[in-house]
Design a protein around this nucleic acid. Structure first.
Lengths: 335, 335
DNA sequence: CCGGAATTTGGGAGCGCTCTCATATAATCG
DNA sequence: CGATTATATGAGAGCGCTCCCAAATTCCGG
């Protein structure tokens, strides 16, 4: 069924029906109602592809998730993000096209995806610092927004939390509790969230006038196994406390500490970042920074849609609030 | 840049360029090469929307994930599935449109999504038994395939594992080890995987000539919390072993058993289903049924694409193999 | 060396909409 | 109440491709 048939049936022209569908004001209430009635009755749905071609907009957003990010299967970060993006899109009559970018996505995918005009804009999730997609996006003149800020000079839009200050806050919490020899398991150094959280850790120590001992800083990869491995290297250096840059890594660290015959928080206190659902159920429950992941996805989608509807050269930047959630793993009860 | 320009530049007609792009055999090698060279040089990408409109096919698959399914955040089931679907689509030059179906998706979404012609087919993940989407899909005459079989009379295509036999196998493993009083934490009764795994449990007991004690059967919801709660109800009934219908629920059960001051497997043995990445790292590691989730997603996408390319009224049904993975939680070492 | 088949190519008509612009009708006002 | 402006509607030209069919070219064997 096509627009034309609706037009014929309601005794008006294609144009008028189109106006009714697109809520154009220039239709008399009478005809509008009549046409709408017919549309309802026949359960007519305009052909999205034709609309896209004629209108020059698909109302489809691309959500790109770099698969190299092992985090994909370690915690529900991406599910939450996807849910946020998806629900915001639904609410704004947009659709989501998903790209789980293969390691070699730079080659075929990138340009192909961007240039084929199937999507109006892109939400790029936790990209690496040197992601070639970023440049491609800019070149292709495709509106996009990042989840997680990007430190480059590029005028990019993003949604993020204040990783640095949040990390500083939770490490400061440890310091306030009296811990001094505090280790950290960082995120990957090619991801801005990892870098920022490490910098927050450093800032907290600085604030307390403490040096940052390189021996107490080990790089992780946001996965549980990575946390376990990192903790193995840290344990011999006898930290009093450890800050893991993600809950998943904290879980691995917790396991390692237990395997080493030590207790949390009595022997080593632990805190982390994310406040994933499982953080409240670990043994002991994790003191962590809560960040609104689904919300970030939703805000990103909304902002992107707004950017496309109201073009404006200046980048949009949104920082979402976090919250320090105190549970048992930091040992605040004991001190 | 459009097809026409390429045509002009290479001194041929639109049609010929189109043929080159679509790998149509009816082009002389000479012109083909010449045209291809120009395309390469200008990095021309045909407009996907226009192709879709003219060709009647979008090369886009819809992946529908019912959000009511709390499993969404409990384990990496969906990430794995998404990854499988996505990579298969990429490999076959298709795109994935994601629908995280809101609870009330029946209303607006369904018809709108199906009828607007933006997608060629649908992969429906772990739908509920009475999912209205199923009927809508059939009515709309939209090719689709389920992840997880459907017991209705409908001639639906699906990809699944043999949940029933796999469950029977792992419960039989417990029986072989000498456990007799075996409890089970089931999946939701409105999901076929939950039902099938329960039936497998029953079949195993039957095979050993044992009655199925209703007191030892508690419904869970595939989440860790659900597993914990279910185990709380089971613990007083003093089972010798428990079969959880998912690893996530087993984790909850493990935690509950520990909280009750009991040990796994000495006091209560535990086995489960899925073999998620974390199943090898629980305390103790889980004996479980490994199922190829990403593979299922990939096979579903491939089958669907094949269905669309070679229409055929008879439904396609694929059963993927599972594997019993024996670890410490079943206590096989102690027996 | 010619007619018919096979192979290449081009032209045109859509695919189902949106959008601009011209036209027709209704409302407004001095 | 006629001229002016606002409001409604329709017609037509695309959007950038695919696909059908006819025309042009090449290839054969008899």
């Amino acid at each position: 069924m096509k627009l034309e048939e609706i037009a014929k049936l309601s005794g008006v022209s294609r144009s008028t029906v189109s106006r009714v569908i697109n809520r154009d004001a220039r239709v008399s209430p009478l005809t509008r109602e009549r046409v709408q009635e017919i549309i309802q009755r026949l359960n007519y749905q305009p052909n999205a592809v034709a609309r896209s071609l004629a209108g020059g907009r698909t109302h489809v957003l691309g959500l790109v998730i770099p698969m190299g990010v092992s985090r994909l299967f370690s915690d529900p970060y991406f599910p939450l993000l996807i849910q946020g993006v998806s629900s915001a899109c639904n609410a704004h009559d947009h659709s989501v096209m998903l790209w789980v970018a293969d390691p070699d996505y730079e080659r075929r995918t990138v340009r192909q995806v961007l240039n084929n005009k199937f999507i109006d804009g892109v939400v790029l999730a936790s990209s690496l610092l040197d992601d070639p997609l970023l440049e491609a996006l800019t070149d292709a003149d495709m509106p996009f927004i990042l989840i997680g800020r990007h430190p480059s000079k590029l005028q990019v839009s993003y949604v993020d939390v204040d990783n640095q200050n949040s990390a500083r806050e939770i490490v400061a919490h440890l310091l306030r509790l009296g811990y001094r020899r505090i280790a950290t398991i960082t995120g990957p150094h090619n991801m801005i969230a990892g870098i920022d959280r490490l910098e927050g850790y450093r800032a907290a120590l600085r604030q307390w006038g403490l040096p940052a001992d390189p021996d107490l800083i080990v790089e992780g990869d946001f996965t549980e196994d990575g946390g376990y491995a990192a903790m193995q290297r840290l344990i011999s250096r006898q930290p009093e406390a450890v800050f893991a840059a993600s809950d998943a890594m904290a879980v691995g660290a917790l396991r390692m500490i237990r395997d080493a015959g030590l207790r949390v928080p009595q022997d080593i206190a632990a805190v982390s970042f994310d406040d994933m659902p499982f953080a409240a159920r670990t043994e002991p429950p994790l003191t962590t920074i809560r960040q609104p992941i689904a919300r970030a996805g939703a805000v990103a989608a909304e902002t992107l849609i707004d950017m496309m509807e109201h073009p404006d050269p200046s980048p949009r930047r949104v920082i979402l609030p976090t919250e320090l959630v105190i549970r048992a793993s930091c040992g605040s009860a004991n001190r």
